[in-house]
Simulated scan of single mutants.
Amino acid sequence: MTHKRVSRDDSDSETDASQPCPKRGKQPARTSNEQPPSAAGPSRPQRKVGASRNKALVSRSAFDLDLPNEGFALEPVHDRLVMKKGKINPNPIHEPPRSKDYTRNQAGVFDHRICDPADDATAEFIDDDRFQSLFQLDYYNSAILCKKHPVVPQKWIDWQHCVNLGCPDMDKALATLERCGFKDLLTMQYPWNTEVIAQFYATVWYEAPSEEQHEIVHFRIQGCNYSVSYGRFAAILGFGPEDLAKPLLRASSDDVLRGSTDDVDLSYCYYDHASESDMFTTHNMKKYYRYINLLVRQAICPKIGSASSILSNVKTLLMIEIVTKKEFSNKERDEYYRPVKIDETAKKKRGRKPSKPQHQSPPQPQSSGI
């Protein structure tokens, strides 16, 4: 099996922050006269988080930036698209390779996401118009179709309910999210179709960007190939070119373990008495940041399921219907989410709940023998 990596201009493209960074080499040992870096720091724990900050990007172009994103009618698709197992060609010229299970083999997925499936030599083994390669078919059958709930439902935030809580920290969090352009994403209600979302995640692959060109997202729905640039995708969600030019931030515990990015202090999110083990959790995190994390986790990136879980992602289906100019039927609706006010004084109960004592009948008086 051969793959061909696609790129607009390999000579002029910069390293994408979304791609895995090489591991950092060993640091030189400190001499006996050198002081450790933490000696001059504050007394509270300083947990560093990996982050990559790119300089403001130049204005990039794409083939679809001038296409309309609203004001046109969608062609209704009356066929009820339901999930069904991908078919293998029963009479291939050559013997097909063994099917792969991608439920836990997420590391093997990355290479296929940056390669054009049209160059894949395994197309002859497929008898299903939805897919172009054995990888796409195997990923659909193993990582998506086998699950009882293949698509993780997302929720939309009841914004007015959050305002009515009357919590200053919640009000501050809402103001920050609205100022950064997240309100429409958090409150968006858009019915989604499970099969369309599944086909998108099974067939999606990415064409690398360059200094002049946006990254391109390619996907396949019902046997037809489509593509959309990052610039147009952002415009569909209500973001402009100025948003794409902002610094790219990435922060996760995995980056810290790899040591692959510059260090940025995140201890400001926590109270002074927070310990090292509290970092990257909500324990002893300030309420303002807890509310932001809570709302984003529910509506944009739910922390549910395994790495192979896919989201209902109403934003993705909105993009798909605008790009394909089709309106799919058999849709499901997301539920609303109404958070409760965080009480930092309440103690969390841990461990198993005590079992209820079994009912015992009162002792009967013993009869005396005659």
Rank of each mutant, 00 (worst) to 15 (best):
K4I: 12
K4A: 15
K4L: 13
K4T: 13
S7E: 11
S7C: 06
S11G: 15
T15C: 03
A17S: 13
A17G: 01
A17T: 08
A29E: 15
T31A: 12
N33C: 08
N33D: 14
S43Y: 03
G50Q: 14
L57R: 13
V58A: 05
S61D: 11
D66A: 07
N69C: 04
E70V: 04
P76A: 04
M83W: 01
N89H: 10
P90S: 09
N91L: 13
P92E: 12
H94Y: 13
H94S: 10
E95F: 12
E95V: 13
D101K: 11
D101H: 12
Y102F: 09
V109P: 02
D111P: 06
D119N: 11
T122P: 05
T122I: 11
E124A: 12
F125H: 14
D127P: 05
D128K: 02
D129I: 07
S133A: 10
F135Y: 13
Y139W: 06
K147M: 13
K148P: 08
P150Y: 06
P153F: 15
Q154F: 10
Q160L: 12
K172C: 15
K172H: 12
T176Y: 11
C180D: 05
M188P: 01
M188D: 05
Y190H: 08
W192S: 02
T194W: 02
T194N: 01
E195P: 00
V196W: 04
I197H: 03
A198S: 14
A202H: 00
T203E: 06
W205I: 01
E207V: 00
E207Y: 07
A208L: 13
P209M: 02
S210F: 03
H214Y: 07
N225T: 14
Y226H: 14
I236L: 14
F239I: 06
F239E: 11
E242K: 09
A245D: 01
K246W: 12
K246D: 12
L249W: 15
A251I: 04
S260W: 05
V264W: 13
V264A: 06
Y271R: 04
T281Y: 03
N284R: 08
K286W: 05
Y288R: 08
R290W: 10
I292Q: 08
R297F: 06
R297C: 12
Q298N: 10
Q298V: 10
P302A: 03
K303P: 02
S308F: 02
V314E: 09
M319K: 01
M319N: 04
E321R: 03
K325T: 00
K325W: 02
E327K: 02
K331I: 01
D334W: 06
Y336E: 14
V340K: 09
E344Y: 02
A346V: 14
K347V: 14
G351E: 05
P357C: 13
Q358V: 14
H359D: 15
Q366K: 15
